[in-house]
């Protein structure tokens, strides 16, 4: 029997790896993939707690998270294609048309 703590520690580590990717990489695609990694680590958390408590809710929320992540990726990649077509850059620091 694997302690639930291990799953949650693994998900924390994966989340921080994803956060490091978002903060240090400048390639838009890699930043998006790091966001996927973070979403996925949250899924591990949901599943671990669902298993620990013997409750279905975590499973349902994992289904929802996966679905919303798929929708997010579709929109993000569409935006990315339009952006690269007009800006010709992959560097997130150079995409500053909104002066953010």
């Amino acid at each position: 029997m694997v302690p639930v703590t291990w799953y949650i520690a693994l998900s924390a580590v994966l989340f921080m790896i994803g956060a490091a990717g978002v903060l240090t990489r400048r390639n838009v695609i890699v930043v998006l993939m790091s966001i996927e990694l973070m979403l996925n680590s949250v899924n591990i958390n949901f599943m671990a707690f669902s298993y620990m408590l013997g409750d279905m809710t975590g499973q349902i929320f994992t289904v929802f998270t996966i679905t919303v992540a798929a929708a997010e990726v579709a929109v993000a990649l569409g935006i990315l294609i339009a952006l690269v077509r007009s800006n010709k850059t992959f560097n997130v620091d150079e995409i500053d048309a909104l002066k953010g």
Binding site: V13, M52, G54
Partner: peptide
């Protein structure tokens, strides 16, 4: 990031949690 992840892992391991439904 390293400090934050060390904090999170330490917090997770210091919190008492059950094993799961037997």
């Amino acid at each position: 990031i390293l400090v934050l992840s060390a904090q999170m892992v330490a917090f997770v391991f210091l919190t008492p949690m059950g094993l799961g439904p037997a």
